[in-house]
Design a protein around this nucleic acid. Structure first.
Lengths: 221, 221
DNA sequence: TTTGAGGAAAATATCGATTTTACGGCCGGT
DNA sequence: ACCGGCCGTAAAATCGATATTTTCCTCAAA
């Protein structure tokens, strides 16, 4: 239920969960849009139960809201919400990365290098899996923190953030920045076990995309 | 779905959610125990759908685990898990409390004082609502941080922590400590807008109960 | 005695249908 | 013409039942 890449799912609930989640994150479903059970049921060719269960799960990911007894809707967006996500993300990932580096092992280091390579390769090839691999790289950096709950928090915030990026329709502009250099810098500092440098670069990496996106959603005070 | 106190629920899903959640938190359902749909269905006198939906929601609260195609079970416990919760709680609540005090208003201050009074009153009367009011006091402290997601994280961690307290069967021992003084100290510092002092007392408050409980679950390195 | 395969029993996941609830327009009253 | 309450429609929530999967027990063979 955590890895978006492992797609040999079997249960209808999982299929519905990932499908709806993807639709919301990529903007295929508009923020605030009413999510009718029957509509999704037909669209995904499944029963009502898996849909309801999937929506319940997405509720806890802050991607879906449940209203009284009137069903579900895609979570709305706002500038303050975006700022909150950005700020939380910086704080939590900074913490997680420091813990990760403090507990660094050879295995972790190799996993990070590997994740980076795969992401970079997909980037150069224009592979559509880049988004998934990008997330996996960032998560690999934090994995050694040894705090599953913290990791899940970061994962959720990552998805919320990427949703705003999709909604701004800026996947291209975003990539055209020199994110590759930024990723390389983070990787280098992490491998060198330089927690301060790595964390600083990571946070700066986020704030840069953040300030870019902030224009689209209004900057609250 | 957030406030445990507002009990005029209508939907079967909500009833099931709070009922099962309460059973897990208070130890009425053992950690790791298999949660059979049919058993719960009879126990709560409802259909299978609300049960499944409630369990799905609890999954995201880390109180229930879903396994492959083999149903659900109550989340297991461990010393490392407890330590993780404690550490995360200290970090996140420290942050939230500082933000809350930084954005303090008269309304917030009054709400905090009120929440403390209610909790204290219930404590002196041996009122069973103490646990709920205790949580409400702590959440009131953080409410002004203006970060709903952070608040929810703290709320989840609070529930996970209180579960360990119940499992240690130490509700009494816990209360017999001078928690009243600790709460009063936090309240005083918060009202005085002394973020450093308030945060320090809050964290120390948690660590004290934490080190007490650590003995029950083993201290991982 | 242990191991492995087969089958029966139980539990889960899913579906289709029923019941309940909320919303929007209509009608009558003021 | 406007306001308030009633009814029809649509959607959600829930239930009962089915099909599929898993588990456990038994029995036979090594």
């Amino acid at each position: 239920m955590t890895e978006p890449t492992e797609r040999p799912e079997t249960s209808a609930t999982q299929r519905a969960y990932f499908a709806i989640r993807n639709m919301i994150v990529t903007g295929n479903l508009d923020p605030g849009e009413k999510l009718k059970i029957d509509g999704l049921r037909q669209r995904l060719e499944t029963g009502a139960s898996p849909i309801r269960e999937a929506l319940s799960l997405l509720t806890s990911d802050y991607l879906v809201e449940r209203i009284d007894q009137r069903g579900f809707r895609a979570a709305p967006i706002s500038g303050t919400n975006f700022q909150e996500i950005l700020a939380l993300r910086c704080t939590l990932e900074d913490m997680a990365l420091r813990q990760s580096i403090a507990a660094a092992t050879t295995e972790w280091e190799e996993a990070v290098v590997l994740a980076h390579h795969r992401m970079q390769r997909a980037y150069e090839n224009g592979d559509s899996r880049f988004e998934d691999l990008h997330k996996q790289f960032h998560m690999a950096l934090l994995a050694q923190a040894g705090s599953p709950i913290l990791l899940k928090f970061c994962s959720q915030l990552y998805d919320l953030n990427i949703r705003y990026r999709y909604l701004a329709g800026s996947s291209q502009d975003y990539k055209s920045r020199d994110v590759s250099d930024e990723h390389a810098g983070i990787l280098k500092a992490a491998v060198a076990r330089d927690a301060d440098l790595a964390a600083a670069q990571l946070v700066s990496h986020y704030r840069r995309t953040g300030s870019y996106l902030a224009g689209f959603f209004g900057e609250p005070r």
